[in-house]
Amino acid sequence: MSHPPLRSAAKQRICDAALQHFVTYGYDGASLNQIAEMVGIRKASIYAHFANKDALYLTLLEDAIHAENEFIRSCFEAAHALPGQHYCESLKQHYQEAWHFRFLLRTAYVPPDSLREQITRLYNAHLALCQQQITHALAEYDAGLAKMDYLSEAYLGLVDSLHVELLYAGTARFDVRLQAMWQLFATALQQHLSP
């Protein structure tokens, strides 16, 4: 299990302020001047910690992915009725509470063009972890399910649908989407359980 790097208090304050600022304004609308004002420093002081806006943004992305990987692991470790259910049911509250999750979704689905390749590589690694977790959970639930690769792909499609709902519609209709998508996935699992 990897841990985020240790940082000075000043660098962490910049990261905390920048995270909220990027979530609110996006990459293009974000301003290092405004981030500096939020922290109570001069813009030049940001450059003592980060080479430029891209470096700050990628640092936040790495932090967000680390936090989300840990969240996924914890959700899959929790006992629940069906594999992957706890993660899906936790997303709404997690989105409301976790700035890094909102940042990750916005970054993954609306990446700045200049960083698209790096973001795609990092996000795909994150999705691979999610797929590993569901594949393992399916195998533990029923050995026969582990042989059906399309179930883990279907689960990623379900998760993607929930992420898109949160990003573009917020939490208002999340429960409706979750219920519909989860019913389809649960039905598919039940149909393929070993006799």
Results as ranks from 00 to 15, higher is better:
Ala55Gln: 13
Lys53Cys: 04
Glu89Thr: 02
Leu129Asp: 04
Ala98Ser: 05
Ile72Thr: 05
Ala143Met: 11
Asp113Asn: 07
Leu122Arg: 12
Pro195Leu: 09
Glu140Gln: 15
Ala98Phe: 00
Ser74Arg: 12
Ser152Gln: 07
Ser152Arg: 02
Leu158Arg: 06
Gln85Tyr: 04
Lys53Pro: 01
Ser194Gly: 12
Val23Lys: 03
Lys11Asn: 06
Leu115Phe: 00
Gln20Ile: 02
Met181Trp: 02
Val110His: 11
Gln191Ala: 12
Tyr109Lys: 10
Ser161Pro: 00
Arg73Phe: 03
Ala81Leu: 08
Ser8Arg: 15
Gln191Asn: 12
Gln131Ala: 11
Ser161Phe: 03
Leu166Trp: 13
Leu156Arg: 05
Glu97Leu: 08
Gln118Ala: 15
Ala48Asp: 05
Pro5Met: 12
Leu122Gln: 09
Ile119Met: 03
Arg173Asn: 13
His66Trp: 05
Asp142Phe: 10
Phe50Val: 00
Thr107Glu: 01
Ala18Phe: 01
Asp160Glu: 11
Pro111Phe: 00
Ser2Trp: 11
Tyr87Thr: 02
Gly144Asn: 13
Pro5Ser: 10
Asp28Lys: 04
Gln190Asn: 09
Glu77Asn: 11
Gly26Ala: 15
Leu82Tyr: 12
Ala139Asn: 09
Gln183Trp: 02
Ala44Met: 06
Ala9Met: 14
Asn33Cys: 08
Tyr150Ile: 09
Gln12Asn: 10
Ala128Gln: 11
Glu97His: 12
Gln34Pro: 03
Gln179Ser: 09
Glu37Val: 14
Leu32Cys: 07
His94Ala: 08
Pro5Lys: 11
Leu166Ala: 10
Ser2Tyr: 14
His3Val: 14
Glu62Ile: 01
Arg173Leu: 10
Phe50Thr: 01
Ala44Leu: 10
Phe101His: 02
Ile119Phe: 00
Tyr150Leu: 06
Ala169Arg: 13
Ser194Met: 06
